[in-house]
Amino acid sequence: MADFLLFALLGGVGVALVAGPLGSFVVWRRMAYFGDTLAHSALLGIAVGVLFDINFNLAVVSCCVILALILVSLQRQKIVATDTLLGIMAHSSLSLGLVAVALLDDVRVDLMEYLFGDLLAITPDDLLWIYGGGGIVMLLIWRLWNPLLAVTINEELAQVEGVPVTRIRLALMLLIGVVIAIAMKVVGILLITSLLIIPAASARRLANSPEQMAVIASLLGVVAVLLGLYASWNFDTPAGPSVVVAALAQFLLLYSLPIRRSA
């Protein structure tokens, strides 16, 4: 097997695994728009990376983490509703990124690669980021699992019960920021949220506990990556969108089957 295909497989599978549990939280807490906003800011990270000659992965991760912090602090403001704020930040950061990239005259950045992903161009360096970053994210989710669930059920109840709610919420946002940054290579800025929410939404159909939902979402994500890569390889379709189409097919299939759940 060609190296680039192996890297693509490993990269896609790594991102899908970590997207499962975090995507479940995005679905439970209705944070899809938040994810989109962080994703759109990733392009700004690329521009910053080019401008200051920083490693792209580092620049994108930093940009997503900083934006997550800004969003957390801005949620307390009462000037505009949260979804309006997210809309402003999402499209402004995307536009800022596009403008900044256009102004860098001596560097040619392939926009398509960042907007829709380039799974087949994943390098060993990218894999290091995906598995290093993804590993840390998984470890933290594992450690914080119960407080994360408690905060998702009801923040005030969790606080009375002694959960450090603000810190847990911040941790979740940062984790989502990191995952979005490392997933960018696979499906691209415009499609990242789908990789978080579609497998999780499909998994809901089969899950009877939050743990099951997280694991099933990871597995469905892995299958979607494999199917997408297969389609891309055989029919020469773009890899990122093919992965998303495969995830959509799973979703439609699972919701059209008569499945009985107990929870």
Binding site: V27, W28, R29, R30, T152, I153, N154, E156, L157, V160, E161, A200, A201, R204, A207, N208, S209, P210, Q212, M213, R261, S262, A263
Partner: peptide, 15 residues
Amino acid sequence: YMPQKLQIDATFPLT
């Protein structure tokens, strides 16, 4: 503490 109402999203599988 028993809050007034607990709204758990229907997508959250919970017994």
